Structure formats: structure tokens, C-alpha cells
Amino acid sequence: MQFRHHPQLRADFPTLVVGTLRLDGVSPSAPADPAPWLDIARARLADTSEGQLPPIQAWRRAFTAMGLKPTQYRCASESLLRRLRREGDLPSLHPLVDLCNAVSAAFAIPVAALDADRITGDLEVRRADGTERYDTFTGDVEHPDPGEVVFVDTAGRAHARRWTNRQSGHSAISAATSRAFIVTEALHEDATADVTALLAALTGALRTTWPTATLTTTT
């Protein structure tokens, strides 16, 4: 599978920094420990609100540029931090998802984890033409608005809507997942350093959790 951002999207958002990680050998029973990363996120929230963090502010500006209300459609990391601030914790869903969510909250940067075997062909982040199919977690089928930024595969299936806002139920990590594709994206001033640090932190956590898994990281 090849992964890329469309050149026009790169031109529209020149500060975009992307990191990817491929994980082969996932199991749902691994003893993941997201607590250290959640503690970092809680410490950040003790000093400021999630909306004041530079990575979140950059995504809010991007959502505004896309014609979206940033307080109605939030990037994934802001939604996680918002829930963590209100509830004090994040729900446990799957060891891989739990780690990705915790590291995302710690760095305030979106992290998407997809079941690689549920992606057909290549995956591109681009503006939708409106024909793409998006499967919700409740089983409904939607079609992204033309011009909306989506993760779309060769078969025309959208695996995320509104860029970093909402993933698809079709490729969500589940108990059956054995291969995962992980993407992190940032737009703020220190994005290069922060994405590098995020990938290092997540790679370390994944190696501890699945020591026999195969990991490949790119930035």
C-alpha cells in the first residue's frame, strides 16, 4: 500500500508534517499501558485548556480554512483532550487504540490507526468529489461533501471524514486486526520536532506491548 497527500492539499497547507507507522503482529490481548501518556496530557490540561495548545490551534485554523466551524468539528486530538478534561480518563477500546489515543493526547496531535487489511490498494488524503463511500460506526453509509478532505483508497472508500475529525467504522481497529497503518499529522510551528518525538514515543510503547511485531516508521 502506498500512502500520500495530494499535491494540491500539500500546497494549500505547506506547514503539514506527516509521520506513518506500519505495525504487523497486532493482538487484542496485549497488556498495553497508556497511563504514562495520559498523565502527561492531564498535566498539560492542568495549566491550559486544550484549545490554547499550539497543535490544536493550528488544526482549528485549518478547519476554518476548509469552511468548517472548528468548535463544531474538532480534530481527533482535541476531542480526546476535551473528553479527558471532562471525564478524567479515556475509555479502553483495544490496546492499540488505547496507546494511540493516549500518545495523541499527550502531544495534542491527531493519530489515526487503521486496519491495513481493510484498505483496498493505495490510500490518499485529498479533497472528495462526493462519490466516495464512508461507513459509520453504526453501519450507516455516508458520502462526503465535495471538496471535503478525506482519506480515500483505490476502491473509492473514505476511511476518514473532515481530514482529522472522524474515522470510518470500516477500517477501525478491532479484535480481528493483525496489521495496522498509523498516521499522525501536524501543522503547527514545531510540528517537525513534535511528530518525530511522537513517533519515537509511540514506537517505544508498541515495541513494549508487542515485542515480536514488525514496525516500520517513516516521516
Rank of each mutant, 00 (worst) to 15 (best):
M1P: 05
F3R: 00
H6M: 04
P7E: 03
L9F: 01
L9D: 05
D12H: 02
L21G: 09
R22D: 11
R22N: 06
R22F: 07
S29P: 03
A30D: 00
A32F: 08
A32S: 15
A35G: 11
W37R: 06
A43S: 11
A46I: 04
E50F: 15
E50L: 13
L53W: 11
P55S: 08
I56W: 03
A58L: 07
A62F: 09
T64N: 08
A65L: 13
P70A: 09
R82F: 09
R83P: 08
R86N: 06
P91T: 05
H94Q: 03
H94F: 07
H94I: 04
D98V: 00
V103H: 01
V103I: 07
V103D: 05
A105V: 03
A116V: 06
A116C: 03
D122T: 10
D122C: 05
L123G: 09
L123F: 09
V125K: 08
R126V: 12
E132F: 09
D140G: 14
P146N: 13
G147M: 13
T154E: 14
A155T: 13
R157A: 10
A160G: 10
W163H: 10
N165Q: 15
S171G: 09
A172D: 10
I173C: 00
A175C: 09
A176E: 04
T184E: 06
E185I: 12
L187V: 05
H188F: 01
L198S: 00
L198W: 05
T203N: 00
L206F: 00
P211H: 00
A213F: 01
T216I: 00
T217C: 00
T218F: 03
T219M: 02
